[in-house]
């Protein structure tokens, strides 16, 4: 029984660990730009990394990870506008809306890029209405 449990447990680890190794997503509706990702990285490190971590693994027990299984569960399948509006209205805590809409979009672009969404020639707009037509899906 113990051997069986250990084997099963090992399998669980292997399955759970797998997404971290190859995390690729597709963005439909538009793209994220190289320069935008760089701008987003700067803004993220200044405004977000204190809780969400330099590598998007949270360093604050109340902040969610922005990569791995938590990203897969929380960022895919729904219009990207939902995430964008949530971030604009609530982040950073106590200073919701304190950045420009375009900076929030840049930060989102950086988060998407870090999770494996490839860069394109176009940029993510800082406009919730436009982002209604954008969706992240897991490959």
């Amino acid at each position: 029984m113990m051997k069986l449990e250990l084997t099963t447990l090992g399998l669980v680890f292997a399955i759970l660990a797998a997404p971290a190794l190859a995390q690729d997503y597709t963005l439909s509706g538009g793209g994220i730009g190289e320069e935008q990702i760089e701008r987003g990285e700067d803004a993220f490190m200044t405004n977000c990394a204190g809780c969400h971590g330099d590598d998007l693994r949270s360093v604050d027990s109340n902040a969610p990870d922005l990569r791995g299984p938590v990203f897969a569960a929380g960022w895919t399948g729904n219009p990207l506008s939902e995430k964008f509006e949530k971030i604009v209205s609530t982040m950073p805590p106590g200073r919701g809306g304190s950045l420009s809409d375009q900076t929030y979009a840049d930060i989102v672009a950086f988060i998407l890029a870090t999770n494996g969404v490839p860069a394109t020639d176009s940029e993510l707009p800082g406009d919730a209405e436009a982002l209604d037509g954008y969706t992240v899906t897991e490959n």
Partner: peptide
């Protein structure tokens, strides 16, 4: 909503999405 987490050193976190 809870999710799986990366079960590796450096993984973990709160597991809430």
């Amino acid at each position: 909503v809870y999710t799986e987490v990366e079960m590796v050193e450096g993984g973990g976190g709160n597991g809430r999405s």
